[in-house]
Amino acid sequence: MASEYYTRREMDFPKVVSREEFTAARKKLLESEKELSRERDRVNAERRALPMVEIEKDYVFDGPDGKLSLVDMFEGRRQLIVYHFMLQPGSHHLCPGCTMLSDNVGHLAHLHDRETTFAAVSRAPLAEITPVHQRMGWAFPWYSSEGSDFNYDFHVTLDADVVPVEYNYRTAEELEEAGLGWMLGEQRDWHGLSVFLQRTGRVYHTYSTYARGTDLLNGTFNYLDLTPLGRQGDGFFSPSREGME
Rank of each mutant, 00 (worst) to 15 (best):
S122C: 07
Y210C: 03
W138L: 05
Q88V: 00
V163Y: 00
V16T: 12
D113R: 15
R114I: 01
E54M: 11
M183H: 01
P51N: 04
R19Q: 13
L180D: 02
R123A: 10
P141Y: 03
Y169A: 13
R26F: 08
Y223W: 07
Q232K: 11
V156F: 07
T7W: 08
G76V: 10
T23S: 11
N168Y: 03
G66Q: 04
R19A: 15
Q134N: 11
M73A: 14
H133A: 04
E39A: 14
N222C: 08
Y223L: 13
S91F: 01
T23W: 06
S3K: 08
L224Q: 13
L87Y: 03
R170G: 00
D215Q: 10
M86V: 10
L70M: 01
L108G: 06
D153I: 08
H93S: 15
D103R: 14
S144Q: 03
D234S: 10
Y223V: 11
Q187H: 05
S32W: 01
M73V: 09
T130E: 15
F118A: 01
F13I: 03
Y167A: 13
L50N: 14
D153C: 08
M100W: 00
R26Y: 09
W190M: 06
V105Q: 06
Y204D: 11
V16G: 00
N168D: 15
A211C: 09
G90A: 09
A160Q: 07
D153M: 05
L197M: 12
A139N: 15
E176Q: 09
A172W: 02
V132T: 12
Q88C: 02
E242C: 07
Y5H: 04
G90S: 07
C95I: 00
N44L: 13
T117K: 12
T200C: 07
A45L: 13
D65R: 14
F61W: 13
S144G: 05
R77G: 02
L229H: 10
E35G: 01
D12L: 11
N151W: 00
R47H: 14
F140S: 02
G243E: 08
T200E: 14
T171N: 09
S91Y: 01
Y152N: 09
D153S: 06
D12I: 00
T227H: 05
